[in-house]
């Protein structure tokens, strides 16, 4: 006990001879390591060097690195059935064209009295009646096909939303049925109604 204490005080004296240190115990350990690492073979080497960066420097490196990232692949690499004939994409295309046409027509209808146009139902019907049969049918099909497609595919999407028919195989199958049905339905509305 006494011998131990004498040893510690001697050590403390040696260490604090240079300058007083509050962290006595930890420094003892460090001193031991430092003296042994000079000669021993257990010294660690770290080939990776770190460098201090300010936040703005780090951000500029990240920004530069992000420019090197590959851009999303072009649509061409995906499955044709999904990208070109997918019901979802055509739902948006048909809906946007129909609504776009409605917006254009309605705005024109509001402006018509000021511009001197005639867009009342009677004039529209008269204009339609004046067209040749082929043009009449073609124009009707152009309106009827997106209408049938959007309506039937809309029901399909509402069913998807409640979890019906949402298997991959079923989606692909009903997608093809939908194309057939909408074309047949459009032709029926255009030429037989």
């Amino acid at each position: 006990m006494i011998a131990q204490r004498a040893g510690t005080t001697a050590l403390r004296r040696v260490v604090t001879a240079g300058k007083p240190n509050a962290f006595f115990n930890t420094n003892i350990a460090k001193l031991g390591l430092a003296s042994s690492s000079l000669s021993s073979t257990t010294q660690q080497t770290r080939p990776v060097a770190t460098q201090h960066l300010t936040p703005s420097e780090a951000q500029s490196i990240l920004a530069k690195q992000r420019l090197q990232r590959p851009v999303s692949p072009h649509l061409d690499i995906y499955d044709k059935q999904q990208t070109w004939f997918g019901g979802s994409a055509w739902q948006r295309i048909t809906g946007a064209s129909f609504s776009g046409a409605l917006y254009v027509f309605a705005t024109a209808y509001l402006v018509a009295p000021l511009a001197g146009w005639h867009l009342e139902s009677a004039s529209l019907a008269a204009a339609m009646a004046g067209l040749p049969v082929a043009a009449k049918g073609g124009l009707k099909f152009l309106l009827a096909w997106p209408f049938v497609f959007h309506a039937t595919n809309g029901v399909r999407h509402l069913l998807f939303d409640i979890g019906v028919g949402f298997k991959r195989r079923t989606i692909v199958q009903t997608g093809w049925y939908l194309w057939g049905a909408s074309i047949v339905g459009g032709l029926y509305l255009a030429f037989f109604l």
Partner: peptide
């Protein structure tokens, strides 16, 4: 669509 100048 080439990437725009990046901002973090």
């Amino acid at each position: 669509l080439p990437p725009l100048p990046q901002k973090v």
